[in-house]
Design a protein around this nucleic acid. Structure first.
Length: 579
DNA sequence: GCCGTTTTCGGCCCGACTGTTTTCAGTCG
């Protein structure tokens, strides 16, 4: 929790300093610290105690002192002083599209605007349009920015972003014919949430590019055009359920790789690359890698990395979290691929809250080329999900054993997603659990309990010899429910000690473990299980989200249990049971 | 504020689009 608060504080200090017009490089440092603290999966208190925080690049003496101060006293004096310099509502104005620090300062200094509501009123009276450097169009743009903000839910889930991208890609395919179209940005990196969707069209220059951009901004699904130039268009599109910000960019063929690299980001990854380019007396931009005026790379991404002395970096890893150094030292991981997955170990049927019966799931798994599945319906305490009683579970076990005798080319494991009760005990007796091949232990209640309680409960669940895996360990629902306040270091350490796997739940609402926690688990030698938690046969198709999330955590094939054969999965499980 | 196989001081990534301007600042990614 401290990490999140510190990130917000450093970001807020940067916001305030921007409005006050302070040195932009200094502001950048604060932003960088905010991002680093926000991204690290380990609690900042622990890093501080172990002296590891001081060694992290980007965190210098001054920031370290501020963080120490916060851990000791619960606040940072400089932060308090900054807060005293401006009205509290001012930083919020920065969240309006088209309004930056200079704009905030102008409306505050000259119109005494201190909140979004007041800014809205000032636009309506025409006061904003009358300011020097403003005008009718700018005022209207800000009004649109406010309207979007009021409707918007902020960042969207990755599945929603894919849906929006597909709408635009389909349209562009019709308009552009054979030209290359590629999704870039955070969507190509499979980030857990997406701010806007970036789409590249390759092989066009000049007027043709402008025509494509125009076609896009005039398309029927466009709700609001934010910008439309000769090479770039930006619009809010209507997916039928939500509004999504989509950018389309047209680039010439010789720059397609450079543009893909550039627009895939992350911004921080790109900054690192450009720094390397500068040191090598080269220049990197979205048109290519240049030595003086000569373009030395740009058609394909790989070439750019190689000319910078780096191995090609998979988009999943481009987060400036050590991948650039690994690329230089030829030690990037060989990431797990969807094709490495040999079975789905987290599936629900109509016996609890799913839509399908077991044979239907078998067929869905067969279509994906799987060798095995595991049926994991809910246990009795999950009453809302029609959790199975001990008797019904025993019945299902018999049913599956019988099915296994007739079903060809597919192993059906018996399993259960058993509730972890508030006291850390399992929802079924050990005698019954012992009958199952695979036990997922999941918390479905009491998730808002304090850190100590949720952590102890999870650790205790892992002590059970029949628990193979902790399901969706933090319980978060993206954009809807906060993660449990788990001590993730303790959980991972205990998982390693007890030979318990941790799930990377592939449902795009969950993606839990998240990327950074997955990476931590892998580094501790903990096995991951990527499960879809499917409640229908379509649900098995969500596996890609889980594989990408694991990949973002630097997972290789060997880090993931369900890349093994059914026999090897079975023997891995038995290691814990036989002590 | 951070950092150093050019540097402990003096740099710090790069370009598109918009709107308000007579040549460019602000914002964004």
């Amino acid at each position: 929790m401290t990490n999140k608060i510190l990130r917000a504080i450093f970001d807020q200090m940067a916001d305030i300093m921007e409005i006050l017009g302070e040195d932009r490089f200094r502001i950048n440092s604060y932003r960088k610290v905010a991002r680093i603290i926000g991204d690290i999966p380990t609690d900042v208190e622990n890093l501080l105690a172990e002296g590891r925080l001081a060694k992290m690049p980007g965190i210098g003496k001054s920031s370290l002192a501020k963080i120490e101060e916060f851990v000791k006293t619960g606040e940072i004096a400089v932060h308090r002083e900054l807060l005293g310099k401006i009205p509290p509502g001012l930083p919020e104005l920065l969240t309006i599209g088209g309004v930056g620090p200079k704009g905030v300062k102008a409306v505050y200094d000259q119109l005494n605007v201190t909140s979004i509501a007041e800014l809205k009123a000032a636009i309506e009276t025409g006061a904003v349009a009358g300011l020097a450097g403003f005008g009718d169009k700018k005022a209207a743009a800000i009004a649109r920015g406010i309207a979007f903000l009021e409707k918007s839910t902020g960042r969207i889930r990755i599945d929603q972003a894919f849906e929006a991208a597909e709408i635009v890609r389909g349209f562009l395919r019709d308009v552009c014919g054979m030209l290359r179209i590629r999704t870039a940005g955070s969507l190509r990196r499979w980030a857990e949430t997406i701010g806007d969707v970036d789409i590249l069209v390759g092989g066009v220059g000049g007027e043709a590019a402008g025509g494509i951009i125009q076609a896009f901004t005039n398309a029927g699904f466009v709700r609001d055009v934010l910008a439309s130039g000769p090479t770039k268009g930006s619009a809010i599109i209507d997916t039928g359920t939500i509004g999504v910000h989509v950018d389309v960019r047209a680039v010439p063929e010789e720059s397609f790789g450079a543009a893909a690299q550039y627009f895939t980001g992350s911004k921080e990854h790109n900054v690192r690359l450009r720094e390397i380019a500068v040191k090598a007396k080269l220049k990197l931009n979205e048109y290519g890698l240049f030595k003086g005026k000569e373009m030395i790379a740009g058609v394909v991404e790989e070439e750019i990395y190689h000319k910078l002395g780096l191995d090609y970096v998979d988009p999943l890893l481009r987060e400036d979290s050590g991948e650039v150094r690994a690329a230089r030292e030829n030690c990037l991981p060989e990431l797990i691929q969807l094709g490495d997955i040999r079975g789905d170990l987290h599936l629900h049927t109509i016996a609890s809250d799913g839509d399908c019966d077991i044979p239907e799931l078998v067929e869905a798994a067969r279509a994906l080329g799987y060798e095995y599945i595991c049926i994991t319906d809910h246990s009795k305490s999950s009453a809302i999900a029609n959790g199975l009683s001990a008797r019904r579970l025993a019945q299902q076990i018999r049913q599956i054993r019988k099915l296994n005798e007739t079903v060809k080319g597919m192993t059906i494991f018996t399993g259960c997603e058993v509730d972890i009760l508030a006291n850390g005990k399992m929802d079924f007796e050990d005698e019954l659990l012992a009958e199952l091949d695979f036990v997922i232990a999941s918390a479905h209640s009491g998730m808002a309990s304090p850190r100590e309680k949720v952590t102890t409960r999870t650790l205790k669940a892992m002590d059970n010899p029949y628990v193979t895996c902790i399901g969706h360990p933090t319980g978060r629902l993206i954009g809807q429910r906060e993660a449990m306040d788990l001590d993730m270091e303790a959980v991972i350490e205990h998982a390693a000690q007890t030979h318990t796997a941790l799930e990377v739940n592939a449902n795009p609402w969950r993606l839990d473990l998240k990327d950074t926690h997955g990476r931590m688990a892998i580094e501790a030698g903990v096995k991951l299980v990527i499960g879809t938690d499917a409640h229908s046969s379509d649900g098995l198709g969500l596996m890609g989200f889980g594989v990408a999330t694991a990949g973002r955590g630097w997972a290789t094939k060997t880090d993931v249990l369900n890349t093994l054969s059914a026999a090897k999965v079975k023997s891995w499980i038995n290691i814990k049971r036989t002590g």
